[in-house]
């Protein structure tokens, strides 16, 4: 058959081009074919925990210290840390330290919903004095972060001490596998876990659902996503989180304590001056002791029992070497 005015060359070119397109389409389809049988990509089955605790605990030093009776929050922090063996015990030279206060709410210090800025500043100062290379202060707030960081007074106080204050930004959250009982995969706020040492500086307060919260609950601030769902099993999720992050040191601010309407408060009359700071390496004991400040006992608070049973710490703080200063 005559090929009309089509040359052989052009014929081959055209057939070749069509063949090439078909071939590549087929190759792509084959390579990316989901034949509907396989499961999704295999999950990484390794639980991630962040344990920043010291390995040694000298027998002559107390394990739980309560500093009292000083109206200067900074002095209370100093006394408490001193009694625990000084900040040098916890911070090594050139450490990158993350300090995690509670900066959850758009409230001013007098409302006692966020950690007292002077407590935070003093912790930062002690870290630098102990040789830390870099101190980061951050939290993933509940209310609008700029407002919380500014109005809590923590932004300025920490910055003045030379800390880097990081605001929670969307890109700072990465999905991690916590493998807890209720917390499996969750968005984790990365600046909190990328550190050599982590110091938890919560504030002690009433919580309408969990009754009392401070140290262990403070790790809610390490999560992103819709963490509001955690309330359905608040005790287990608190225990899960405390298992996920074990801080080097816990310093509970109880200089002024929210007695009612926690965790947000808002009424000055809801808070009461207590001039107390608790310092310990055991976050369960910190809360077991602390809950007494608002008239609770450890066995009334389920997450303490869970933390105890999981071996995160002890809810019987009386069994620890205790010192009051």
């Amino acid at each position: 058959m005559p090929l009309r005015d089509l040359t052989r060359r052009e014929l081959i070119q055209r057939l070749g081009a069509a063949g090439l397109v078909l071939g590549s389409a087929g190759a792509v389809a084959r390579a990316r074919w989901d034949h509907g049988a396989g499961a999704g990509p295999a999950a990484i089955d390794r639980a991630i925990t962040r344990d920043f605790r010291l390995s040694s605990a000298p027998g002559d030093l107390p394990e739980l210290v309560v500093a009292k009776n000083d109206t200067d929050p900074a002095a209370l922090v100093r006394k408490a840390v001193e009694a625990l063996g000084g900040m040098k015990r916890f911070i090594s030279n050139q450490d990158i330290v993350v300090v995690k206060p509670n900066i959850g709410w758009d409230r001013t210090p007098i409302h006692a919903a966020n950690t007292n800025p002077r407590v935070v500043a003093e912790v930062v100062r002690l870290c630098y004095d102990a040789g830390a290379k870099h101190v980061v202060v951050t939290d993933a707030s509940c209310n609008e972060p700029n407002r919380c960081f500014q109005r809590s007074g923590i932004w300025k106080a920490a910055y003045d001490m030379g800390a880097e204050v990081i605001l929670p930004a969307t890109h700072r959250f990465r999905t991690m596998r916590l493998k807890g009982e209720v917390l499996d995969e969750w968005l984790v706020y990365t600046p909190l876990v990328n550190a050599d040492k982590v110091i938890n500086v919560p504030i002690a307060k009433h919580h309408n659902l969990a009754k009392y919260t401070a140290a262990m609950k403070n790790w809610y601030g390490s999560l992103g996503g819709r963490r509001n769902r955690l309330h359905q099993n608040i005790d287990v999720s608190i225990a899960d989180l405390a298992q996920f992050i074990q801080p080097t040191l816990t310093i509970v601010d109880a200089t002024r304590v929210l007695m009612r309407n926690g965790p947000q408060g808002g009424n000055v009359a809801d808070a009461k001056d207590m001039h107390t700071v608790i310092a310990t390496t055991d976050q369960v004991a910190a809360d077991a002791y602390g809950c007494q400040l608002i008239g609770r006992t450890a066995d009334e608070i389920p997450y303490l029992k869970m933390g105890h049973e999981r071996g995160i710490g002890t809810m019987h703080w009386q069994t620890l070497r205790f010192k009051e200063v």
Binding site: Q150, K156, Y159
Partner: peptide
């Protein structure tokens, strides 16, 4: 846009 500052709490 509100970007926080070092202004005092009040």
């Amino acid at each position: 846009a509100f970007r926080g500052s070092f202004a005092s709490a009040d």
